[in-house]
């Protein structure tokens, strides 16, 4: 008996979906847009996260050592730095490596190469390149370097300089801007989601309002609340599934297209951007199952729950 009425409700929901094709079409358009907003938010977050990671990666502090500093002392200091919880990565660049990359960089610039020969020795210091987990943590590294008393004697004597003060302005700005960007992203996402939710719910409400006489008739010929409501919930769930599929297809195209624009835009960006190539589309492909579940799942829940709630007020016959 229960199985029979379930089967009938589903069939009736399907038939209603096709026969009210104009109503279904309008609902699906609105639904698809809402789900597209949801999907775009996922990718917007992916994009900002990747960009922020790139920007953070570009920020670092170089510690320069005196020309006569012994390599063992520098490597020992490197180990100390690596043990600090704020530090994510320390790279050692020896004097030889420094001069090699310098001459490589300026190999077409004769005056500089000539000047270098003129000096007769390698003027470049050995360097430790330090990266922290958050830009705001560079200050504690700088503090450590400046407070000569806390450093062992053999280390403090070989530190020549660090680049923190030169870059202080930009580091400070970044450590303020990045959380702001992240927070704005969240607020924007939530606001857009609420708007999409309200619009979708109201669309369903209007479509069910047009069936209120039908619901009354169902009740008057003896249908139970569940039996009168069932077909509408089934139709709502179908709106969710169809719109979800539409949104997924559009998202595939959209991510591919945005990637193309991004590549053109990034060609002007200095530094390594290979990680940002095909970022969105490859994220779409590699996370397809999760995205599918989120988009279609949201559609199904939104459609079913909206219908369930919207029918309720017309059941009191």
């Amino acid at each position: 008996m229960m199985f029979t009425s379930l089967k009938r409700m589903i069939r009736s929901g399907f038939v209603g979906f096709w026969r009210n094709s104009f109503l279904s079409f309008s609902s699906i358009v609105v639904f698809s847009i809402s789900l597209l907003v949801l999907g775009s938010l996922i990718f917007f977050n992916t994009l900002t996260t990747a960009f922020i990671a790139k920007v953070k990666d570009r920020v670092d502090v170089n510690i320069y050592f005196t020309l006569d500093a012994r390599e063992e002392s520098i490597l020992e200091f490197k180990k100390t730095l690596e043990k600090m919880p704020e530090v994510s990565k320390v790279d050692y660049i020896s004097r030889e490596e420094a001069i090699a990359s310098f001459t490589e960089k300026y190999k077409d610039n004769t005056p500089i190469i000539e000047g270098l020969k003129e000096i007769g020795y390698n003027p470049l210091p050995a360097t430790l390149n330090v990266k922290t987990k958050e830009p705001s943590q560079y200050e504690s590294i700088a503090n450590l370097l400046e407070n000569k008393d806390t450093l062992p004697k053999n280390i403090s004597s070989i530190i020549e300089d660090d680049s923190y003060h030169k870059n202080k302005l930009i580091i400070d700005r970044l450590s303020r801007i990045i959380p702001l960007v992240e927070r704005t992203g969240w607020v924007l996402s939530i606001a857009l989601l609420i708007v999409a939710l309200i619009i979708t719910f109201n669309t369903i409400r209007l479509s069910i309002y047009s069936s209120k006489d039908e619901i009354a008739v169902m009740k008057l010929v003896g249908a139970s609340n569940t039996y009168a409501r069932g077909p509408f919930v089934v139709s709502g769930v179908m709106y969710g599934i169809v719109s979800g599929v539409i949104a997924l297809v559009i998202l595939a195209g959209l991510t591919y297209y945005v990637d193309l624009i991004l590549v053109r835009f990034l060609s002007a960006y200095p530094g390594d951007v290979s990680g940002l190539k095909n970022l969105l589309f490859s994220y779409y492909v590699s996370h397809f199952i999760e995205i599918l579940i989120v988009i279609i799942g949201s559609g199904v829940i939104l459609g079913g729950a909206s219908s369930y709630i919207a029918v309720r007020r017309y059941l009191n016959v």
């Binding site: 029979t4 169902m218 010929v221 249908a223």
Partner: peptide, 10 residues
Amino acid sequence: FAMEAAGRTD
């Protein structure tokens, strides 16, 4: 529909 609502068989 009236028969379905009354739980009659197909």
